[in-house]
């Protein structure tokens, strides 16, 4: 029974940070129509904000994590202005530009921090027991932060004029423009939020992983599987698919094998595509 609870706790943690990354990716795609291949590197940048501010400069961890959100959000704004806006009419060019940008980000981090893994001492070693399962405060922080941030995002999208504008642009950009909604303004907001969410995911998980300049590769593949399963463009789909994928992957890893878990994850994506080519929430509900 302890094993079941521990696995469930592990899955909740994985679902939390993957939701943040996948929702950010969906935001960018939904509003701008660009598949941002550099999204994994935005996660990596968030982790390195913590490496620099917390591990090297001794700022408080939460301040470093918040700085990660803001800094990576600003990098997102730069990407929007320098790459995606000039290439707005050609999504393929945007995708290729994002691949180039991810290599630039990796190289910059290598130059700044070296090639080896960054060392982040744990902000706390406190832990609590939930039905025999161990949950460290650091992992609990990731879970709580993900819930709060996603709830705030939901409220922003449903209750504010900017949120309505974002959703309108995601549903039909031209119709939204005819109503006087600025595409440039909404793209900026989407890029800042999308990048910022990846950044905060990287920042919060930095003490729990071994940050390297190449860590983005590992998360981007999973993020793509999640947004395809959830339905490309659907925020609710991304969250539900992240939870589904995390639970399936974690339980299969624990009770069978990590490599089999990857195969099952991909099989899940294929099965959803065969039965419902738009993904679980694709087309019907978009951001």
């Amino acid at each position: 029974m302890d094993l079941l609870w521990q696995t469930a706790v592990n899955a909740m943690y994985a679902a939390s940070y993957m939701s943040l990354i996948a929702v950010g990716l969906v935001m960018i795609f939904g509003v701008m129509g660009v598949i941002n291949f550099a999204h994994g590197e935005l996660y990596m940048l968030g982790a390195y904000c913590v490496v620099f501010l917390y591990a090297q400069e001794n700022f408080p961890f939460l301040l470093a994590a918040a700085a990660g959100l803001v800094f990576v959000g600003l990098v997102g704004l730069f990407m929007e202005r320098a790459m995606f806006r000039p290439l707005r009419d050609n999504p393929l060019s945007g995708l290729i530009a994002s691949i180039g940008f991810l290599l630039i980000l990796q190289t910059l981090v290598v130059l700044g921090f070296g090639r080896r893994m960054g060392h982040v001492p744990p902000p706390t070693q406190e832990k609590l027991e939930v039905f025999g399962a161990v949950l460290t405060h650091q992992r609990l922080l990731v879970i709580v932060a993900a819930i709060l941030l996603l709830a705030a995002l939901w409220a922003f999208l449903k209750r504010t004029r900017f949120g309505w504008a974002l959703r309108a642009c995601a549903q039909d950009a031209e119709a939204a423009a005819l109503q006087g909604i600025s595409m440039t303004q909404t793209a900026r907001i989407a890029m800042f939020i999308g990048a910022g969410l990846a950044g905060i995911a990287g920042a919060l998980t930095a003490p729990l992983v071994s940050p390297t300049p190449y860590i983005g590769h590992s998360v981007i593949v999973t993020a793509f599987i999640i947004i395809i399963v959830g339905g490309i463009g659907s925020l609710e789909g991304a969250v539900i698919a992240a939870v589904l994928y995390a639970f399936v992957h974690t339980f299969v890893t624990t009770f069978f094998d990590g490599v089999i878990a990857n195969i099952v994850g991909l099989a899940l994506m294929l099965a959803v595509l065969v039965v419902r080519p738009t993904g679980l929430f694709g087309a019907k509900e978009r951001a």
């Binding site: 521990q6 592990n10 994985a14 990590g258 490599v259």
Partner: peptide
Amino acid sequence: PEFFDPATTDFAPVMTKLLA
């Protein structure tokens, strides 16, 4: 033996299985 994917970043499930 537990063989994990070299792309693994979250080792909690691997360790849970090993310690089970």
